[in-house]
Design a protein around this nucleic acid. Structure first.
Length: 424
RNA sequence: GGAGAAAUGGCAGAGUGGUCGAUUGCGGCAGUCUUGAAAACUGUUGAACCGUGAGGUUCCUGGGGUUCGAAUCCCUAUUUCUCCGCCA
C-alpha cells in the first residue's frame, strides 16, 4: 500500500511510475484518493470539534455535580444530547470515507524503482547477466519427469492418488535429495547471518493482508474455511508478518531471517508444458530469506541478497541468468525484482528458481512495521525477500543437466548432505 | 472439549464511573559527578490523525452497549493462566 502523504506530495511522480507498471486508470484513481483524503480531513475536523465540545461539557457537568449544583448540571445534560447525535453522524461519515479510501488504496500497486525497464511481457525483462555454460547432453538424454520415473525418485501418479495433480511423492534418493537441498540452503543462509526460523504454515487473514496476498490474490491461496486460515504460498508471509505492528530500534536493522517451509499454491489458470513434472506444483519446498532494512540501505541489501542467491547456483554448478523484471512483469507489491533462472537442458528452457524483491514501504505500511530513527521519529522500514531457493525446478535442472549414460551426478557441495555421489 | 480466573505503556505492576493517556518500579535516552566506567543523583521516555501554531481528537486485547462522562459497569469475540478430559 502506498503512503498517502507520498501520493499527496508527489502526484506527478506517482502517475509517471504507475504508468511503467502499466496500471490502468491511475489518474482517476489517484484523484479520487486525494479527494477522499481531503474529505476525510474536514470530516475528522468536524468530528473532533464536536467531541471536544462534548468532552468539555461532560467535565463541567462533573464539576457541577460535585459542588451540588444539580439543576445546572441537568440543563447541560440536555445540551449534550444534541451533540451526541451530531457526533454519531460525523463519526459514521468519517468511517465511510476512510473505508472508501482504503478500498481504493489497496488496488494501487507499488511504484517501480527508477531503474525498472519499461515493458509489458516477460520478453521485455532486462537480462542482467548469464553465468555458466550450457551443457551438451548425450543423445538419449531425457526430461526430468522421465528421469524421476527411471530412477524411482518421484512418483507423480501416486501423488494424484493421494491428493491430486501437483502433489508429488518423493521417494528414496529423491526424498533424500530434497532433504539435502533444504539443509544445504539453510546452512548457507545461516552462515550468511540469517537467523533461522520455523514459522507456522497456516496463517490468519491479517497476515495475508500484511504482505499483500489479500485481498487481490485470494484465489491463489488454499483456504481452510472452517477456521478461516490460509496455507502459506511462501514463507515470506509468516516471516515478514512477525514484524507486523512492531516498532524497531534503528540499531536493530537490518533484520535477517530465513526459513524453510512447504509452500502451497492453487495455481488456478495454469496449463500445458508449464505444469509438466516439477515445473509447477501445488505443494513445493522452499527456503526463503527475508530482511527488514533501513530505507537508505535497502537497495544495497537487495544486491547482497541477489549475490547470495547467485552464489548458491554457482556452487550447485547450474547455468543461470539474472533478469531485472520490467514494469509489466513485476508483482503487485514490488519496487524492484530480480528473477534468477536456471537452464533446463533437456527441456531447452529457462526455469525461474528465485525471485528477489525490494518492497520498500509497500508491505511495511500495511504491516505497520516501523523503526525509530536518530531523531526519535518513527518511519516505515523497508522489507525485502527472496527465494534461496525453491526446490522443484532446481531438482529438475540438476537431474536433467547432470545426467550421463551411467547415472545422475550430484554436485560436490551436496554430497555431504546426500551421502551419495551419483543416482544410478 | 468442560469449569474457573485474567488481559493496562518496551517489561513488571497500580488504578473499580468524573483533570487518567493513565501512580510507581525496571529498562531506554540525556545530563551531573568521574581520567574512563560503574554506582549515585537530576531530567526525560507510547502511538495515530487534524492543525502553521496554541492546541484538539482517538487508542488501557478486538468489537458492541449503558452513561452527560468508561481503563473502571454490561454483552461478545479472541488470547493467556489454573483445574478436569483427550492426546502426538
Amino acid at each position: 500500500m502506498l503512503q498517502l502523504s507520498y501520493i499527496r506530495d508527489n502526484k506527478d511522480d506517482v502517475l509517471k511510475r504507475l504508468a511503467i507498471k502499466n496500471f490502468k486508470d491511475a489518474e482517476s484513481i489517484i484523484n479520487s484518493i486525494i479527494e477522499l483524503d481531503n474529505n476525510r480531513k474536514s470530516a475528522q475536523r468536524q468530528a473532533d470539534d464536536t467531541k471536544a465540545e462534548a468532552n468539555g461539557l461532560a467535565k463541567q457537568i462533573g464539576d457541577l455535580m460535585k459542588s451540588g449544583k444539580k439543576e445546572e448540571a441537568e440543563t447541560l445534560k440536555i445540551k449534550t444530547a444534541e451533540l451526541k447525535q451530531k457526533e454519531k453522524l460525523y463519526d459514521d461519515a468519517l468511517k465511510g470515507i476512510e473505508q472508501e479510501m482504503h478500498k481504493w488504496l489497496v488496488t494501487v500497486p507499488n511504484l517501480p524503482h527508477i531503474t525498472v525497464p519499461v515493458g509489458k511481457t516477460p520478453e521485455d525483462n532486462e537480462v542482467v547477466n548469464e553465468h555458466g555454460s550450457i551443457p551438451v547432453l548425450h543423445s538419449s538424454a531425457k526430461p526430468h519427469w522421465e528421469l524421476t520415473t527411471k530412477y524411482d525418485l518421484i512418483d507423480f501418479e501416486l501423488g494424484v492418488k493421494l491428493t491430486g495433480a501437483g502433489f508429488p511423492v518423493y521417494k528414496g534418493k529423491g526424498a533424500r535429495l530434497q532433504r539435502a537441498l533444504i539443509n544445504y540452503f539453510l546452512d548457507k543462509a545461516t552462515a550468511k547471518g540469517y537467523n533461522e526460523v520455523q514459522p507456522p504454515i497456516l496463517v490468519n487473514a491479517d497476515s495475508g493482508y500484511g504482505t499483500g496476498q489479500l485481498p487481490d490474490k485470494e484465489g491463489q491461496m488454499y483456504h481452510c474455511q472452517v477456521d478461516d486460515l490460509y496455507l502459506i504460498p511462501t514463507a515470506e508471509v509468516p516471516i515478514t508478518n512477525m514484524y507486523r505492528d512492531v516498532i524497531l530500534k534503528e540499531g536493530d536493522l537490518p533484520i535477517k531471517n530465513c526459513g524453510y517451509t512447504p509452500c502451497f499454491r492453487r495455481e488456478a489458470g495454469s496449463y500445458g508444458k508449464d505444469v509438466r513434472g516439477l515445473n509447477r506444483l501445488h505443494q513445493f519446498d522452499k527456503v526463503e530469506i527475508v530482511q527488514i532494512a533501513h530505507p537508505d540501505k535497502s537497495y544495497e541489501t537487495l544486491e547482497d541478497m541477489r549475490e547470495f542467491v547467485s552464489g548458491l547456483l554457482q556452487e550447485l554448478e547450474l547455468p543461470y541468468r539474472t533478469l531485472k523484471l520490467c514494469g509489466g512483469d513485476m508483482s503487485f507489491g514490488s519496487a524492484l525484482t530480480y528473477d534468477l533462472e536456471v537452464w533446463s537442458a533437456a527441456q531447452q528452457r529457462w526455469l525461474e528458481v528465485s525471485s528477489v524483491s525490494n518492497f520498500e514501504t509497500f508491505q511495511t505500511n500495511r504491516l505497520k512495521c516501523r523503526f525509530k530513527d536518530a531523531n526519535g521519529k518513527t518511519q516505515f522500514a523497508h522489507s525485502l525477500n527472496g527465494s534461496a531457493l525453491a526446490l522443484p525446478r532446481i531438482v529438475a535442472s540438476l537431474l536433467e543437466n547432470n545426467q550421463t549414460e551411467t547415472g545422475i551426478k550430484i554436485p560436490k557441495v551436496l554430497v555431504p548432505y546426500t551421502g551419495f555421489e551419483i543416482i544410478a
